[in-house]
């Protein structure tokens, strides 16, 4: 139906990275245990990256995504404590569900704020989400007074930490959500309109696309992913804090670019994003096994993205396409 670009470069990079890591860690990398730990860690970054991809495809960005995740975690933790009478470890299923719902609503509220500013008031996306981020960071600190909140019931922890049929539950979640996400982005009317708006806001408006509600929807969806990320994070860390995972904000953006999402909006596939997240995870796990400085992982990630962007540039894919003005248009621009 609609033409999509190929992910050949990304498959190639994934294979190369896997090979390099296997060679550098001859005894430890190609082990079931190692792949298990990758399956355990990958969903966290994957959900953040998906949440970032939505607004970028629409021509924006969500700088508040990590702050929203922390906000969700904190609200959920506080509701748990309040609704279970101070003993969150024994909270009933209903209380857990209500608390999580509260967390999700908090995330959506944050998304609605960004979405309203950007979609309705046309505030530039960077400004709006930067504002939302700083607002949430402040609120998060006020709510927690800077302390770490800890102690969650097993059912909640299972989301990030449990195992089902020998595979981590977060990885099952990731598989299911990735399928749904792909349908939303590449098969639904909302997804189609989002790609159109990201490609040309003006032309989309002149085609009667409701730019306001689609942009609003994109920030709500982005925040929903932040909430999912928050629940995984709560399970894996067994705690929430005002400023967890802040360095992952830029990693989520970087994963999008690595996955072939057009920084200017309007292009990028979910499968490319998933491959990009896998590449980042393999690098991170491999470097860890070598017992190197963890900050080296960040450097490696940055390096890989630069290599891929350079490669894509040389092969002409990422280059800002010059419109073919000769085809009867050259004078259309000035003569008209």
């Amino acid at each position: 139906m609609r033409r999509r670009s190929s992910n050949a470069t990304l498959y190639l990079v994934l294979i190369i990275v896997l090979a390099i890591m296997a060679v550098l860690n001859p005894t430890r990398f190609l082990r079931v245990r190692n792949f298990y730990s990758m399956a355990y860690q990958l969903p966290f970054l994957a959900f953040l990256a998906m949440g970032q991809m939505v607004p970028i495809v629409g021509g924006g960005i969500n700088l508040a995504i990590v702050a929203t995740a922390n906000f969700t975690g904190i609200i959920t933790a506080m509701l748990l404590r309040a609704l279970s009478g101070g003993s969150p470890l024994e909270a009933s299923t209903l209380v857990i569900l209500v608390s999580m719902l509260g967390g999700v609503l908090a995330a959506l509220l944050a998304g609605a704020l960004s979405g309203f500013l950007i979609g309705y008031l046309r505030v530039p996306d960077i400004l709006a989400t930067l504002g939302t981020m700083i607002l949430l960071n402040g609120v998060n600190i006020v709510l927690t007074k800077g302390y770490t909140l800890t102690g969650f019931p097993d059912a909640l922890i299972a989301i990030g930490n449990g195992v089902f049929l020998g595979i981590p539950i977060p990885f099952w979640l990731f598989l299911a959500i990735a399928v749904v996400f792909r349908m939303i982005m590449e098969r639904s009317v909302f997804g189609y309109q989002l790609y159109m708006i990201g490609s040309s806001y003006t032309a989309s408006r002149f085609a009667g696309i409701n730019t306001r509600s689609v942009i609003m929807g994109s920030y709500l969806l982005s925040s929903l992913f932040a909430a999912i990320t928050a629940f995984v994070m709560m399970g894996q860390l067994n705690s929430v804090k005002a400023n967890y995972a802040e360095s992952y904000l830029l990693v989520s953006v970087l994963a999008c670019f690595l996955g072939g999402v057009d920084p200017l909006g309007g292009d990028g596939r979910v499968s490319g994003l998933v491959l990009a997240v896998m590449i980042l995870q393999v690098i991170s796990t491999g470097v860890n096994l070598m017992r190197m400085d963890p900050f080296f992982i960040l450097a490696m990630w940055g390096f890989i993205v630069l290599v891929i962007i350079a490669a894509n540039h040389l092969s002409g894919r990422f280059r800002l396409q010059r419109p073919l003005r000769g085809l009867g248009q050259d004078s259309g621009l000035a003569d008209g």
Partner: peptide, 27 residues
């Protein structure tokens, strides 16, 4: 409305002919 400026108002240039034709009737 068919605008004079088809390059920015009339068409989403980056997208395909099909995607452009479907824009108004997508619902």
């Amino acid at each position: 409305y068919v605008p004079e400026d088809r390059l920015t108002q009339g068409l989403v240039l980056k997208k395909s002919v099909g995607e452009n034709i479907a824009a108004v009737i997508i619902d």
